[in-house]
């Protein structure tokens, strides 16, 4: 690894963190809905904008060197590990309370079918066909990617659907969830329910959703992070089974039904 570039990357990260933290939490209120933008949102927006190919000149070219970008994507998961450890510590003191409503946690896992129930009709309506299978099976993370590539290969229409969703989710997932979670809060959902729902199966999306809820309701921090983390952990246990035994058959059924009725 080029040492100068690596040092530049580190300095750059410190600068971005400083800028993002000094901007702090900004709230935008539209009617009765408040959107909170956290430092993490500024951090990802600034790093993405500065990384656009047209801007990559001088020091930015060295910061966004292939090695540095590869390092970030290869080790991102390891940079995230302390956060995962933190979630464990959040769940521990709330364990009794969580087990008490354990059945709610298990039932809300069925919410993962929402990708098919809501996503598939919309996809077919705007004219997608086989791509829709890949794009709506789940939130397009590693699990869906593996399933679709095994069943249809990634070069198929289904494969292109899931790959596109994977890319969109990687780039905008955390951002999207950090905006949508407080909107639902303003629409009257209970914070506990939204925290539970945050465990969608992607750690960055879960973090986006739960962090903005924490920022809005700091006094409920321990409940929010523990519910989100417990549900996320449950999704990583049950997610594959939900996908294979429920989402995939449901999707096949709905697809045949909707595409047929479309022709008549």
């Amino acid at each position: 690894m080029n040492k100068v570039n690596a040092v530049l990357l580190l300095v750059f990260a410190l600068v971005i963190i400083t800028i993002a933290e000094l901007i702090g939490i900004q709230s935008i209120t539209i009617g009765s809905i408040t959107i909170s933008l956290l430092p993490l949102v500024f951090a990802i927006i600034i790093t993405m904008v500065l990384g656009m190919k047209v801007l990559r000149a001088g020091p930015l070219k060295r910061i966004y060197s292939k090695q540095n970008v590869d390092f970030s994507s290869k080790y991102l998961i390891f940079i995230m590990l302390p956060l995962m450890a933190r979630y464990g510590a959040d769940v521990a003191p709330q364990m009794g309370e969580i087990l008490q409503v354990g059945w709610v946690f298990i039932f809300q896992e069925l919410g993962n079918l929402g990708t098919v129930l809501i996503g598939l009709p919309i996809a077919l309506l705007i004219g997608l066909r086989r791509e829709a299978i890949g794009a709506t099976l789940g939130i397009g993370r590693e699990g869906e990617l593996a399933y679709i590539s095994e069943k249809y290969t990634l070069e198929s229409d289904e494969g292109r659907g899931v790959l596109s969703l994977y890319i969109i989710g990687t780039i905008f997932g955390a951002l999207f969830f950090s905006i949508i979670a407080p909107v639902l809060l303003d629409l009257g959902f209970r914070p506990e329910a939204l925290a539970m729902a945050s465990g969608v199966g992607s750690s960055s999306m879960m973090t986006g959703a739960s962090s903005t809820l924490v920022a809005r309701l700091p006094e409920m921090e321990s409940t929010i992070t523990s519910y989100a983390a417990a549900s996320q952990l449950l999704t990583s246990f049950l997610g594959t089974f939900t996908m294979i035994f429920l989402a995939a058959p449901l999707q096949q059924f709905m697809y045949k039904f909707l595409v047929r009725s479309d022709r008549t």
Binding site: A13, I17, P39, L40, A43, I44, T47
Partner: peptide
């Protein structure tokens, strides 16, 4: 969360 999203970006 902020450092993680910096590297994610």
């Amino acid at each position: 969360t902020t450092p993680i999203l910096t590297f994610a970006g």
